[in-house]
Design a protein around this nucleic acid. Structure first.
Length: 426
RNA sequence: GGAGAGAUGGCCGAGUUGGCUGAAGGCGCUCGCCUGCUAAGUGAGUGUGGGGCGAAAGCUCUACCGAGGGUUCGAAUCCCUCUCUCUCCGCCA
């Protein structure tokens, strides 16, 4: 959510921004609605002032035994009027808020204007793409051949877009989670969080999933609870409605959670393999910092995520999302894309974003520079560090051997009792 | 699931026969004074959101005592609903 006062006085800028982002949002009614809101508020507060004053007067007069019946009947009318105006207000607020909540964040000045993913500039590349002297297979074939991935039974149990890992497949996934958490906590100074995997609608609104993206969420029938689509939701909401102190910033959290997404609207896309699942594991990095640091904190969060790929020796590139590809709440986003030789493409494995004060305003996350000074909105930053399932995919495809086995990256071997290769079991 | 208790400012804690209580008192914190010894004393200040005026400092109004409704001229105080916390019983990983 943007600042109301800012929008009020920068409507042209907002409209340009919406165009850059490819949004079709009509804000023409905004100004008159906002004016109406303020005039209603003013008259309401005048009436309340009067009521408060006279009520005090009544109390004093009553004590001294004076007759107050005429004042009371007069105030009866005033109270009635107040109630009528109060009843109007929610409707105005709602009319004003509905489009307002649908305005996306303003892109950072460094974000290039573009239409879609094809316009995303590549910022840097890392690692050498391996030269295969055989035809590399996609991970679903590798995994099923090794009996560590089973999509048909997953479909039997739950349906399409679910997966089942077994044996070393399950173990590799678990070990990857530990590996990532260990690096971020021990080497990068993040505090580990294990949050609820279901959250209420207030939390979902705080991070921007609601009201705009309800169809993407799984809701628990009969409860005000949703399955989290990312740890960003519970972890960012840790400090909802809080005033942080300057000294504790930046706050850095790392959290492993499963993530649940309906993937509505992506029918027919990535139907094979582990790429797009209703449930997947992710290790998420979340930061809270002061405004002047958020640019730098996004850079360091991104390199924190990159380090996982470097240690696993998986080649990747970093792209900066253009205006047309940028997410709703983000001012700037770096996508880290890992190379998948089985599919001959770079695939997003982490998305690192600076939300500036956009999420913080919704979620009411503030900080105070000094005791007694005013409050300011914090900036929030988050990114995957990394998507575990896609890391699993990248290992299978990049480390596959002609005989169908998969070599385990050096960095993971200590987590697997020194095991160096995944062979078909049983 | 059954029975009961509670939810007040950064914290503790008054206030429940409705009326200068945005809220006593204490602690903490900030600034000043005093003092000189790892402390004590003393003075002042110390919530958030919204509106109006102002270049600003600031002034002023309004709302907020878990949340939402209701009663009333007037509610932290009365009534209803909900949420959360605690205690006991039951059940359970």
């Amino acid at each position: 959510m943007l600042d109301l006062k800012f929008v009020r006085s920068n409507l042209d800028l907002i409209n340009d921004m919406l165009k850059d982002r490819g949004y079709d949002l009509d804000l023409s009614g905004f100004q008159s609605l906002d004016k109406k809101r303020r005039s209603i508020l003013t008259s309401l507060e005048e009436l309340r002032y009067r009521r408060n004053k006279v009520s005090d007067q009544i109390a004093v007069m009553k004590k001294s035994g004076e007759d107050v019946s005429s004042l009371i009947s007069e105030m009866k009318a005033v109270s009635k009027e107040i109630k009528e105006i109060e009843a109007e207000l929610p409707d105005i607020m709602d009319q004003l808020n509905r489009p307002f909540m649908l305005i996306p964040n303003i892109p950072h000045e460094s974000v290039v204007v573009g239409k879609d993913a094809d316009d995303n500039p590549v910022i840097r590349r890392w690692g050498k793409i391996r030269d295969f002297d055989f035809n590399p297979l996609p991970h679903w074939e590798i995994g099923e051949n090794l009996n560590i991935l089973d999509f048909s039974r997953a479909a039997k149990i739950a349906g399409s877009r679910f997966s089942l890992q077994s044996g070393l497949g399950a173990r590799l996934e678990r070990v990857l989670i530990n590996f990532m958490l260990d690096i971020h906590t021990n080497n990068h100074g993040y505090t580990e969080i294990l949050p609820p995997f279901l959250v209420n609608s207030i939390s979902m609104t705080g991070t921007g999933q609601l009201p705009k993206f309800r169809e993407d969420l799984f809701k628990v029938d009969g409860w005000d609870l949703f399955l989290i689509p990312t740890a960003e939701v519970p972890v960012t909401n840790i400090h909802r409605d809080e005033i942080l102190s300057f000294d504790e910033l930046p706050i850095k959290y790392v959290s492993y959670t499963p993530c649940f997404r309906s993937e509505a609207g992506s029918y027919g896309k990535d139907t094979r393999g582990l790429i797009r699942q209703h449930q997947f594991n992710k290790v998420e990095l979340v930061k809270f910092c002061c405004p002047e640091d958020s640019d730098q904190e996004l850079e360091s969060l991104t390199t924190d995520a990159e380090e996982i790929l470097q240690r696993l020796e998986l080649p990747y590139r970093v792209v900066s999302l253009c205006t047309g590809d940028l997410g709703f709440s983000a001012a700037k986003t770096y996508d880290i894309e890992v190379w998948l030789p089985g599919q001959q493409l770079f695939r997003e494995i982490s998305s690192c974003s600076n939300f500036t004060d956009f999420q913080a305003r919704r979620a009411n996350i503030r900080f105070r520079r000094k005791k007694g000074s005013g409050t300011e909105l914090a900036h929030t930053i988050n990114g995957s560090g990394l998507a575990v399932g896609r890391t699993f995919v990248a290992i299978l495809e990049n480390y596959q051997q002609p005989d169908g086995t998969v070599v385990i990256p050096e960095a993971l071997r200590p987590y697997l009792n020194g095991l160096s290769v995944i062979k078909k079991e049983g």
